[in-house]
Computed example of a mutant assay.
Amino acid sequence: MGRNNLDLVDPNGVPMIKNLMAVAERGMGFIYNVYPNPAADNVDELKLVGVQKVDDDLWIGSGI
């Protein structure tokens, strides 16, 4: 069973999923958040995330 990540926040308390949803509602855009990088011993790093709204029920995002 999946899990609900709606209230997921970064280490600074910034709401990651809710911010992505707000950007997707505008059509598309980018946000930064802080992310524990598993490739670097979980050191907190900035992550750029892009998101695009497909329709009212679907949006696609990717980050680096």
Rank of each mutant, 00 (worst) to 15 (best):
L48Q: 14
N4A: 01
G63R: 08
V49S: 06
S62V: 14
G63K: 10
N12C: 00
R26V: 03
N12W: 01
G13Y: 11
Y32Q: 12
E45N: 08
I17A: 01
G50V: 00
L20E: 07
G27K: 10
F30R: 13
A40S: 07
K18F: 01
A40V: 10
A24C: 10
K18D: 02
I60G: 03
K47G: 03
Q52R: 09
I64N: 03
I60H: 13
G50A: 06
P11R: 06
V34M: 07
D10F: 07
N37L: 03
A22C: 01
D7V: 06
L48I: 13
M1A: 08
K18V: 01
S62Y: 12
Y35S: 00
D44C: 10
A22Q: 09
A24D: 02
N33W: 11
W59L: 02
I60V: 15
P11C: 10
A22G: 09
A40L: 06
N42K: 13
Y32F: 05
I31N: 04
Q52K: 15
K53G: 00
I64T: 06
N33F: 14
L46R: 08
V54I: 04
M16K: 04
E25N: 07
G27F: 02
V54D: 08
V54A: 12
M1V: 08
E25S: 05
N42R: 06
N37R: 06
V9F: 12
D7N: 13
N5A: 09
V49N: 04
R26C: 05
P15G: 07
Y35F: 11
M28T: 12
L20W: 11
N5S: 13
N19W: 03
P36V: 01
D41K: 10
L48K: 14
D44F: 12
V34A: 01
N37H: 05
V23D: 10
G50P: 11
N4Y: 00
P11F: 03
D41E: 09
M16D: 03
L58F: 02
D7R: 01
M16C: 03
K47R: 15
D56S: 00
V9D: 11
G63M: 05
A39Q: 12
M16Q: 11
P38N: 02
D56G: 04
D44N: 15
L46V: 02
L8N: 04
A39S: 02
M1K: 12
G29W: 04
A22V: 01
N5Y: 11
V9E: 13
A22Y: 07
V23R: 10
P15D: 06
N19Y: 00
V23A: 09
V9T: 15
A40W: 07
N19D: 04
R26L: 08
D10K: 04
M28C: 15
D55Q: 00
W59G: 00
M28Y: 08
N19M: 14
L20M: 15
V54N: 13
L8F: 13
V14N: 09
N4Q: 09
G2T: 09
I31G: 10
A22I: 08
G61W: 11
I17V: 10
N4S: 00
L20G: 14
I64F: 07
L6N: 05
G27V: 07
L58P: 00
M1Q: 08
